[in-house]
Amino acid sequence: MRLIAGLAVAAVVLGAAGCGGGSSTDTAASPSGSGTGKPPLRVGLAYDIGGRGDQSFNDSAAAGLDKAKKDFGITDSKELEANQGETDAQKEERLRLLAEGGYTPIIAVGFAYAGPLKKVASEFPDTKFAIVDDQSTLAGNITNLVFAEEQGSFLVGAAAALKSVKNNVGFVGGVQVPLIKKFEVGYIQGVKHQKPDVQVQVKYLTQPPDFSGFGDPAKGKAAAQGMYDSGADIVYQAAGGSGGGVFEAAKAAGAWAIGVDSDQAKTADPAVRDRILTSMVKKVDVAVYDFIKNNVDGTVKSGPIVYDLAKGGVDYATTGGHINDIVPQLEELKKQIISGQIKVASS
């Protein structure tokens, strides 16, 4: 612990020295700097339910923060997490506490913060905010970090169609919300684009406001089992913590599963990793890292930044080598999506 702190202090010193040495940054007007070089950033993160350690997208945001802290010598950061069943007032208060504590930038992880952020951002015009997965809340001091989940899902859909022997694949969504619908829609379009006659089974684990579908492996397992039993040989899951159950079902059925958010062939339970065909990678960590980096550089812009295939914000994973033979085809599709030749619908 002490060693890390020591390293961090050293990094700050080095960073500050580097800053002073640069000729261009000295003259750049910075609102917080007072001539002696910019003080290190103090970063605040407000998580959705689950917080750090959810093995899903909160963790991905945390990874981005950790990397930024290391690279930019940030020593002061605060991470606050949401409680089950809380009201918007509580989310507002969380953001307010961070802003009041002088943290900037502040990153709100999850679209649930959209309404609260709108209010708080106008109360603290000098604080920089970012929100992940929402582009409905626009303001001069808000950066919207959004992802083209449908594009990545299209590619893993195409992969599923190419790899399916039984011409029958499945999709397990955690909770039936518009965000997860984007995964489903892109996936089905990808499957049908590759092989129009492949059958797609779709199942959502829970309906809002029951969000347990993002954290219940038993439900994921039952749903996937049902799909394998009725003829599917590949199931794509966008179900957060329930995804582990889908992998277990794949293992038991000797079939394939497709991971989501991170490269799950590297992060899932080691016993099931060999059944993960590929993963639709959604790089929340990159978005968070980039946003902090832009704050460090003083180049932060407000408004939506779409992390799509072109930007490398979404992608498919090749860990395990199970799809090595179809990579050329997938790369071709990727090119066509980036060039706009293929339009992927999001709803």
């Binding site: 959209a114 997965d133 582009q135 409905s136 518009p178 309906q207 809002p208 029951d210």
Partner: peptide, 17 residues
């Protein structure tokens, strides 16, 4: 409630319904 919200009463705005 979810059926009512998604199919009848709700409108989608970004990722919120």
């Amino acid at each position: 409630g979810s059926w009512l919200l998604i199919e009848h009463f709700g409108t989608v705005n970004g990722n919120a319904i």
